[in-house]
């Protein structure tokens, strides 16, 4: 290219407009650590690795996923709470660690929006109400009738005390006014095993893996807990359509940074996250765990976290769920 006065002028203008961008572009200078407060191998871990891998290519720094498991996610969450608020330590937070734990774990002394800076929502995971294939109930109304007929006799499985699958079921029992027994398991795998084996009557599980069992004829899905039907199982009604007014239980997932993280850094990570969530390849991978992407602003994430904390707190108080 021949450099003329004109192109020089254009180049100068381009550099001038690029200047403010350069100031922000100072972040990231080094690797970003994304803390997953659960052991490797679960849905949380898979989500973090999918997002981290995509963001690495997007943001221009390597996003390293670090598993800091312990105490239902409290250990890893607190590690990020106490980390330097410089944007180099991020947290994968969800309804379990942010919305439920502060109500049930005495050790979880943190507040999701006061002790953290919300960066952006990643996704929502609605669940499916799945019953044992031999249970006579054909729909949600039938299940409620059966539970009322035999109070305390139906058992439901959860993947642990205070997990989303436990809370979704408690919310259902509370709203439907039924009495059912809670059988907690260590993770969703063993819970599903006993449902398939006929020892458990129903459970709330993530949609794709539940759908896999339903499609194989080993279980039946009665409803999904999101506000809308799931494209994975379009024939299955939402809980509201099935007659439970106002019932919605989708687990929210998002990226958080320690409180006091600078706004420009948060904006940069948020932009990168939203760009990644718009990528169909990422959406497809997230869908494996039933994730419905929810790109948005940090402010929307903050509002969602506050609402989530309030919602589960109210249930735990009203239904008098005793965990300790």
């Amino acid at each position: 290219m021949k450099i003329t006065r004109r192109t020089l002028g254009l180049m100068a203008a381009a550099m001038m407009t690029a200047l403010p961008a350069i100031a922000v572009a100072e972040y990231p200078q080094r690797n970003i650590t994304l803390v997953v407060p659960f052991p490797p191998g679960g849905g949380n871990d898979a989500m973090a690795r999918i997002i981290g891998d995509a963001m690495t290519r997007q943001i221009g720094a390597t996003v390293v996923v670090e598993n800091k498991a312990g105490a239902g996610g409290v250990v890893g969450t607190q590690a990020v709470q106490n980390a330097k608020p410089d944007g180099y330590t991020l947290l994968l937070g969800h309804s379990g660690t942010m919305g439920i734990n502060p109500h049930v774990y005495p050790a979880a002394t943190y507040h999701p929006t006061r002790d953290f800076t919300p960066v952006g929502l990643i996704s929502e995971i609605p669940l499916a109400l799945v019953v044992n294939k031999d249970l006579p109930a054909q729909d949600v109304t039938g299940l409620i009738a059966l539970a009322k007929e035999k109070p305390g006799e139906l058992s439901y499985a959860s993947s642990g005390v205070g997990t989303g699958s436990h809370m979704a079921a408690e919310l259902f029992a509370h709203d439907a006014g039924i009495e059912v027994a809670h059988i907690p398991y260590r993770g969703s795998g063993p819970a599903m095993t006993d449902l398939l084996g006929g020892r458990i009557d129903f459970l709330f599980g993530v949609i794709p893996s539940s759908h896999a069992q339903v499609a194989a004829g080993k279980a039946r899905a009665l409803a999904v807990t999101g506000a809308e039907r799931s494209p994975t199982m379009p024939d299955v009604p939402t809980m509201q359509e099935a007659g439970i007014d106002g019932y919605e239980a989708a687990l929210i997932y998002g990226l958080l940074a320690p409180a006091g993280t600078p706004d420009d850094v948060v904006a940069k990570v948020n932009a990168s996250l939203n760009a990644v969530l718009a990528d169909p390849a990422v959406q497809e991978k997230l869908a494996v765990d039933g994730s419905v992407p929810r790109p948005g602003t940090p402010a929307e994430h903050r509002a969602a976290l506050d609402a989530d904390l309030e919602k589960w707190g109210a249930l735990i108080r009203d239904a008098k769920i005793e965990i300790h």
Binding site: A46, P208, H211, A212, E284
Partner: peptide
């Protein structure tokens, strides 16, 4: 992570 839903 590979995009496979584990199941039957």
């Amino acid at each position: 992570i590979q995009g496979i839903v584990p199941g039957p």
